[in-house]
Design a protein around this nucleic acid. Structure first.
Lengths: 213, 213
DNA sequence: ATTTGTGAACCAATTCACAGCG
DNA sequence: CGCTGTGAATTGGTTCACAAAT
């Protein structure tokens, strides 16, 4: 049943899922591919294809039942599997992420935080276990942590990544500006605010051809 | 000269630029497409095509001169154009972004912060002008702010976006989990940590076919 | 009458292969 | 000879158009 889902499809499906949560909360009970596509800014056939990767589910006359479709996505993508996560770097950004409750609510248990400043570790008020940075490898391995956020200055990012990988990490969200050395089977999602601003800046230049739908 | 640069190319070129800054700092002076491609985890011809969108620049025997290539990217993409930016939502995440110096260093002047809590506006120590959220439209218009970060809870995100757009914003980095209604000619980059974790989680499942290079 | 699901057709992006230059 | 730049081939994704379902 499971084909090889393209990455863009996976990203859209996650957005669809998030959208369904809101629609459900607003009291809606059914939704069509056209409606979903308008809210996401993509073509209707694209949505249907995306959903189709996980098997049939829609009602031919009345679109999708929101609750059913949401569960379908959760099962198909394994969205309610629990995973352990950690945060490396507890400056302003790292602390903000450490306190971000929505991660835990969605099955991502933050079980450790790391920083190279002992002072900082002693100052932060949290129930989460905090460790000095040199323990990254050991703690990640011992606790079986699958996912990590890197929120250290970019000069320190590669070393943080190396230690995480040595400990057996599976995926990294890299908030530093550093371009990390690619490693086979370690998946990285880069989030660099300056890069995002630059992309927006280029896209919004008047002579830029590509228009959003 | 400027063709229609694909979005993936634009994203890679920004990473290449960032990489060049580091290589330059480390004392290197020349770099080949093969070397760049290895550090980015993409194929060498891809890098050459990407750079090719901005015109010829390489030395046929010895690859690219790092400094020249960096300037080439900066000119070609307009990376040193200055833009005004603002932050909507000054909780932990918004405050962290407000204090993130690298934005200013790269030409993005944060000229305003907004929050619906007056108390919060009075507590934050910064030289940046802070305003209550109901002034978003007016301030964005008056100051000619081009870019915005949304860092409010997801229930408040759509209204924040509406006010920004009404004020004439050009691009938005949306850190909330909300899926914003698409608007023509307003460009949005969505950053949702839960979504990123979910994507990593799916990608790192053993039966997942797609492997990174 | 609508709206899904899907093969076919189309388009975009990556990769290949080699010509051209130093 | 090594490395860039680029048309050609290929792969991957999106869009189209229509059959199937209720």
């Amino acid at each position: 049943m499971r084909k090889d889902i393209p990455l863009p499809t996976l990203e859209r499906l996650c957005k669809v899922h998030r959208l369904l949560e809101d629609l459900e909360k607003s009291g809606m009970t059914r939704v069509s591919s056209t409606d979903l596509s308008a809210r996401l800014g993509v073509g209707p056939p694209s949505i249907r294809k995306d959903i189709g990767y996980l098997g049939e589910i829609g009602n031919f006359r009345a679109g999708y039942d929101i609750r059913t479709l949401r569960h379908h996505l959760e099962n198909g993508l394994g969205l309610n599997k629990k995973k352990k996560a950690c945060i490396v770097g507890l400056g302003r950004l790292g602390s903000a992420i450490l306190h971000y409750e929505r991660l835990g609510l969605n099955g991502f248990d933050i079980v450790a935080g790391f920083d190279s400043s002992i002072n900082r570790l002693e100052t932060i008020a949290t129930v989460i276990e905090l460790h000095p940075a040199h323990e990254i490898t050991e703690v990640v391995r011992r606790k079986g942590i699958a996912l990590a956020v890197i929120a250290v200055p970019s000069v320190a990012a590669q070393e943080a990544a190396d230690r995480l990988i040595e400990g057996g990490i599976r995926g990294i969200v890299n908030f530093s500006a550093a371009v990390l050395r690619p490693v086979k089977n370690i998946f990285v999602r880069d989030i660099d605010l300056v890069r995002e601003f630059r992309i927006l800046s280029v896209l919004s230049e008047p002579y830029w051809k590509k228009q959003q739908p």
